[in-house]
Amino acid sequence: MKVAYWPGCVSRGFTPELHGSMALLAPLLDIELVELDRACCTGAGVIAEHNQELADTLNARTFALAQQVDGAELMMNICSTCQGAQSECQERLDANAEYRSHVNETLSAEGLTYVKDPARPLTNKNFLWLLVEEIGLEELRSKVRRPLTNLKVGPFYGCYIVRPRPRLGIDEEHPRDHYLEQVIEALGGTVIEYAGMRKCCGFPIITMNKEASLKQAGRHLGDAVDADADCLVTPCPLCHLNLDMQQPLAEGVVGRELNMPVLHLPQLVGLALGLEPKELGLSRHVVRPTPVIDWSTSVVGAAAPAGGW
C-alpha cells in the first residue's frame, strides 16, 4: 500500500535510527512510503499552547500536502506525539466548516487547501495502527522470520496516542491502546505488563521540572525492570529520548540501576522480520540493547542448522 508518510522531526534528528529502520522495514511489509518532505513540525502541542490557529494552520498545510499524494491510501506517521498533535488539529478543522475555510484562506497563498470530503476523508494513522488495522496481525505473523520467542517486551505507548480516547478513535472495536501487546504477541514475543505502560515519560517538562520529568521516566523503567522485561518498545521518539537518552540521569534521580533497553516499534518489527540489529540502528541507543542482541544472535545460531551448513 502507498502512504503519505510523515516521519516527524525527531526521527530524522536525535533518533535517526527510527526513520532509518522504518525505511528498511517498509518494503518487507509492502508499504510504499511517499515522504512528506515539504511539511513542517506538528508543534508537538506546544505551538497549540502558544496559538491554536497557528498550529491548526501548519498542520492543515501538512494534511493538504498529504491529500496531493497520488494514489496514497492514507497518511502515516511514526510518532505518538505527531499523531496526537495532528489529531487534535484535525478534530477542530473537521468540526467547523467556517473555521476550515478561514484556515484554508491562509493556505491559499501557497495554493493549498485541506479538503474535508466525507467520501474520502483524510485518514492519519500511526504505524502501530496501520500494522494492526491495514496489514493485519495474521499477515504480520506470516511474515515473521525470526519469532521473538522468549523475548520479554514491555509496551510503552506515550500519552498522545492513548488519550483522549474519542479523539484517537479508541473504542471496543478499535482497542488501539492494546495494539502494542497484540503486535508483540504476533511477533512471537512475551508481553510484560507493568504499571507505567500508558503513563507519561516526562519529556514535556524536561526543561521546566527536570527532577519530576526524570522521576517519571525512572519510575516506569524501574517498574519494567521489576516486571522482568528484557526491553521496552515504543511508537514515540520523544518518549525514547526521555527513556533511553536520559536514562543515565534518570538512574541518578530514582537511585537505582535500570539498564533497560528501549526499542522503536519499527526496530522490534524489523528484528522479527529478519533484519539485523545493526542495520536497525540498535547500536546507536544510549542504553545498549545487549539482551536483545544476545537474544537475536542466539536465535540465528539456533536456526542456522536448518539452512544446512
Partner: peptide
C-alpha cells in the same frame, strides 16, 4: 523562572526558522 515561557517561545521560534525541530 521555570523556563516555561522560554520553552514555548523557543519551540515556536525554531519551527519558524527551520520548519523542523532543532533539538540541540
Amino acid at each position: 523562572q521555570n523556563n516555561g515561557e522560554r520553552h514555548e517561545a523557543t519551540m515556536v521560534g525554531l519551527i519558524r526558522d527551520y520548519g523542523l525541530l532543532h533539538e540541540a
